[in-house]
Design a protein around this nucleic acid. Sequence first.
DNA 1: AATGAATGAGCATTCATTCAT
DNA 2: AATGAATGAATGCTCATTCAT
Lengths: 210, 210, 210, 210
Amino acid sequence: MGIEERKKRDKEFRRHQIMDAAKNIFAKKGFSGATIENIAEAADFSPATIYLYFKNKDELYASLSLKMLKIFVEKIEFIGNQENLSSQEKIKALPKALYQVYETDPLNVTHLLRYQSTEALRNLSPELASQIKDAAQKYINTMVRIFEKGVGEGVFQDCHPVAFADIVWSIFAGLVLWEDTKKGFDPRKDFLKPTLQLAYDIVSQGIKKC
Amino acid sequence: MGIEERKKRDKEFRRHQIMDAAKNIFAKKGFSGATIENIAEAADFSPATIYLYFKNKDELYASLSLKMLKIFVEKIEFIGNQENLSSQEKIKALPKALYQVYETDPLNVTHLLRYQSTEALRNLSPELASQIKDAAQKYINTMVRIFEKGVGEGVFQDCHPVAFADIVWSIFAGLVLWEDTKKGFDPRKDFLKPTLQLAYDIVSQGIKKC
Amino acid sequence: MGIEERKKRDKEFRRHQIMDAAKNIFAKKGFSGATIENIAEAADFSPATIYLYFKNKDELYASLSLKMLKIFVEKIEFIGNQENLSSQEKIKALPKALYQVYETDPLNVTHLLRYQSTEALRNLSPELASQIKDAAQKYINTMVRIFEKGVGEGVFQDCHPVAFADIVWSIFAGLVLWEDTKKGFDPRKDFLKPTLQLAYDIVSQGIKKC
Amino acid sequence: MGIEERKKRDKEFRRHQIMDAAKNIFAKKGFSGATIENIAEAADFSPATIYLYFKNKDELYASLSLKMLKIFVEKIEFIGNQENLSSQEKIKALPKALYQVYETDPLNVTHLLRYQSTEALRNLSPELASQIKDAAQKYINTMVRIFEKGVGEGVFQDCHPVAFADIVWSIFAGLVLWEDTKKGFDPRKDFLKPTLQLAYDIVSQGIKKC
DNA sequence: AATGAATGAGCATTCATTCAT
DNA sequence: AATGAATGAATGCTCATTCAT
């Protein structure tokens, strides 16, 4: 009993060891720049061992994405579940929450957002693909719920709630990537935080029922 | 003299021949999926010839991006210059204009937006890099001008104009990529146009001075 | 004692379990196409377990060959021992007998004949190698006896009996492989049986003393 | 004109350079033992260059086989065309001719015969496959012609001529492989030549009309 | 101007085999 | 006896890029 469990935990632990290493390497070198050997080395394993834990490079990368995605979803759900916040306040809470996740690991967040849907994410095992889809769906559901409540309360204008959820996410993704682009030209500049703030201010203002 | 000019025109013509071919191949196969040989073949040249016109694969790709970017800038400038439109109307004109460009060549636009700032765009020749920077700057200038005019007229709330320009662009980029992602899961769905519309409606509403 | 024996039998049983599985996998995928993992799975063991019963992949393969070889030898010896057959008739009985074995498991017979002496069969453990050699020797002895009897009786021409044994075997091997080759070009054709018949008719005619 | 031709010849020359190198490496290490790198090195080229001349390892190997096959076919056709030989004599001339080719390059002949129809020879480009098929067909045609002439003249017994051609080839192939096997057990022994002789003596005797 | 020819450098993945448990 | 876990070693093939002609 104890043995079984310990083995399982060990295995899970090593899986994470690999994912951690991969996270760093991918962030540093990009998806195609990173080699399995790099990752293996960083994880203190042999390349072949990586394949005991992940079907292939794509799935390893996708696992990382999924993990990140889940963190985002959690954050959003947390906001959605806060009974003491008004719908307005929930929208206003978004930029801070999203930025917090971004801050944890800027490179990987940027990466996730950029490669949201590259070839790398096609050809995944069905389970992984559906897990990713689930996470995305959860996000949408939460955002829709927040929005519809506001509409029901008469504080938000009535419009397509899923489209709204899309917009909220896209603003975040778009800004992260765009700021990244700009940083490419001039590395000193980093206005992501205030710009995010502004963007969601505008949005929350823009959906208000006058 | 005439000869000189003809030569130049010829050269420019062949450059475009290559870019056209490249555009299709990149769109079809993605950046790393496309090979110089593919492109050369499509352009009816030998691979080596490509290098007479472009320093390397990255620059070829970046040239394409630049071209697309210029089209966007043009469109935006055109809106900015329309004297008969109010500041409000100019903002409202954005989604249609941007979507029009998108429609021209969805794959390449998506591609441009995704790889805005990948490694591919580092290591460019200084000229090309600065040309891209210029185009981006032009876009920002135009958008800033539109916005500041509205602020001056008291119809827009006062906030950082460059941040506003960033947001406007990011919404577009973000939505295009996100819709592309969603299409990856369910190819039938394509709500880019109405969602863009809604997004800019919200924005134009959100920056209005009450 | 009883326990000892039971253990031995069990072990032998599992050995055969593996060999059976291996036979199928090798036949289906060829020697290099087959993986120990494939075989282990088919035998309901883990790969590591295979190595408790066979030194390595080569030996596992060779064990199979040996088994097949023994079947051939048996058949030939059976013919050799039939007192009621004349030397002539014994030669004439060969094609049917050989074909019968072939029929049992065409893929594995073909395989055995093709890889009779590949690298796979070098590096064997001495015991296995000598067992294979023994089987081959037995075959030769039997064939030589048959032939020499015929010579002694004055019905066969006098020639080198071992060479004769070699020829008899080679015709069989050669035809099996050649028919296999031809089947590669046109899978419908399969004339092995009549061609074997004809070949041994010619031989038995050819060695007759006029 | 001269330039074109010289280029072509050069190219052909390098192709042969590679084939020569490959021949040696394949013979020394076997098909799967040989690596492209080995071959490239032996041919004084880079691995990538090999692929300019051959689609892949399989085709390179098959080209070698084809070459060898053509030599065999030539030899046989030469015999078939010799007007001054009787049908009997033609059959009797076979072992010497076949052995002569064998002697040129025993390793490769053995190899060809062993892998006549391995996976390596599947997946070939249609041209190459058909060339090989053609060569085989030519051999059969020649042998059939020889045999049928003998039948027509009343010196050979009447039997299926293609089967006869198959047998003739199979005896050669079978004996070469079998002698190779035996050499594996005891390298000193090499009785291929006399055994071939004997085999075809038996055959020519066996098909004679009494 | 154009290109045929050549290549260096790179890389995901496979698998037989070992060994601690 | 059985195996889960780990790995060393191996390799065809691709492709951007260069350069002599």
